[in-house]
Design a protein around this nucleic acid. Structure first.
Lengths: 194, 194, 194, 194
DNA sequence: TATTAATCGAGACGGTACGTCATGTCTTTTA
DNA sequence: TAAAAGACATGACGTACCGTCTCGATTAATA
């Protein structure tokens, strides 16, 4: 007979509840107390988890944030895989801008960009696990749009992406606000007409 | 002429030698050990200065870096005040890109952008003491160029600046390299022909 | 006759191989790394045994040491049961002194005396399982020797035992060396001539 | 004008209040929770002192206990320097026995004897700082008594001391009680009549 | 010409967090 | 049912910095 509650706690294998508790605690602490308040001890305290459990599964707190960022940005700003019309492309960059500027989860992205400046291995992880794979798919998105004749960028694909994303991120990093119009204007300018 | 002992330590007024020793120690430590190695204790040790002397004159180590950044960027990438031709304008942004990407002093700029994400008061200082005044002069530069008929930007002045500077900074932050061609292309595109 | 697989691991009854592996691992670790290196984790690692197996059979590592001490001191310094002549009695105390001072197994005795100071339940076990039973037999040894007219102690039996054993143990505990002559002199003095 | 109270708190030199707080906290914890409860963290907590302050001045908690033991045993069981009569000598050993058996401060002695078995450097410190100097003075006490014709020991001086102290310490270590009579009897026996 | 006041190097202090280790309990899987 | 394996919450370890403080010496401006 197996009870309704199948005994959630611990065992020989990784404890999923602990994993989620850590991710949520990290997210919450970042929102509530900023990066300075995001210590391993605080995460452990908040998650009701042992420090060792954190160190067992994550090499550093940056990796914790990366886990949440990857999950969240996949959910909220997926790179479109559908047929790449001009609207789809531009819509994606607008969504990305809103994610970075307005969404608390987007705050994690900025935090990791920042931490990457202070910490080489954070930079490495951030690039390998987040930036590079996403850039791959973004480049592919543009390429498909070009093939479909939906856009005709004036610069090469990577430069186009940096030119569209860079200003948005830079504004967010320097505390300047909404980038919606900026994205629209840049999009028109850089993606061209077919 | 001073005594045989060339160490005229202490006195009633601020010790300029101590001030410089702190600035240089901070700069050196940042280059050699990264931001993680830039602790007040390490600066004091390296500069041969008491911790209290640092805390007496700087509210935080971010202000020390700001002091060096302001001095260095004034020296290496001054915003042109001469007649604003298209070449002068474009040249400025190219110089800025090189400063950020290649110059160790430009590294300080990235470090402060980063630290501003982790620390509200760092963000405030960085904006007030560095970003805002410089932006003021950059906006003025563009305005003079427009007046002179040297350029005719397609976006408003602030958006133009973000669109030119953002991609460069974003590339530097994410570890991507040289932005020279990018600046040239963006300049042509965004500053237009008269 | 055993199976093709020479590792008849685990089963229904207590695994004697595991028991011995634990005892030997504990002994070895004590000799090689001292009491500080004698952790349950280290014993388990060394013995190739699961921690739980240790906790299942021994309430604490002190009991493991007690098991080895009891076995070893029974083997190397048995309390004589043969007719109790003066030589037998004195010989026993001399053997005991050598056990405590020279024999690695005697080291365990000192370790347990020490641990008993830090840990009440260790003290309890040590007294109940080791000290008391042995004292019983030592007292009996003396009594038989008195009855036989082989010795005539000047103090009561327990005081005589403490007066003979105490100095030897104290010297061993304080790092002072050989007690052979001391035992001889004390023996002559305290056990008297018939 | 120098006040009666010369500003007690902290500064550039060692803080005497902190030193005493640590010693008392260590003593109290040992009495209340045993050696197991005597952690550096607990001492710091109890003394209202930073852990670093403890590590700055004491290489280990054993040295803290040594400090208290040395002070306490100097106060309660000083080795007599007055003319060494038989009564003075015997009185000293009786006092020592009471110190070890009844006095909470004597408990520290037993704890250190114990810890010396587990920790080489504790053993070294204990011998150098406590045992050796005290033994020196005890030997001197006996020598003076012999010279004065007050006693005539049957063993050499060190053996006599071990034979008198050893049984008392051994009894205390093994939880056996009062040693008053034992000391008297041993004293009569070993110190002899002039 | 003293006195006063500020600065300096030095470093002790109460704290917080670090990353590691051992504790004893628990579960899972295999025999 | 025992055993190996190992995850888990707990809590101490010893170290590094934090920012505040007190000290004694040094020097310039004031009385």
């Amino acid at each position: 007979m197996s009870a309704v509650n199948p005994r959630p706690r611990a065992g020989n294998r990784r404890d999923e509840a602990a994993r989620l508790a850590v991710l949520h605690a990290a997210d919450d602490l970042l929102v509530e107390h900023g990066f300075a308040g995001l210590t391993v001890e605080a995460i452990a305290r908040r998650a009701g988890v042992a420090k060792q459990t954190i160190y067992r599964w994550w090499p550093s707190k940056v990796e914790i944030l990366l886990d949440t960022l990857i999950a969240d940005s996949e959910k909220r700003v997926p790179v479109p895989t559908a047929p790449a019309t001009a609207d789809v492309v531009l819509g994606y960059f607008r969504d990305f801008a809103r994610f970075v500027v307005d969404d608390p989860a987007g705050r994690v992205l900025l935090t990791l960009v920042a931490q990457a400046q202070h910490d080489t291995s954070a930079a490495e992880s951030f690039r390998t696990r987040y930036l590079a794979p996403r850039r791959e798919r973004e480049r592919d998105l543009l390429a498909r749009a070009v093939d479909a004749g939906a856009i005709s960028p004036r610069l090469d694909l990577d430069a186009t992406l940096d030119a569209l994303i860079g200003p948005v991120v830079y504004r967010a990093l320097t505390g300047a606000g909404g980038s919606d119009d900026l994205v629209t204007a840049l999009g028109e300018d850089l993606l061209g007409k077919p």
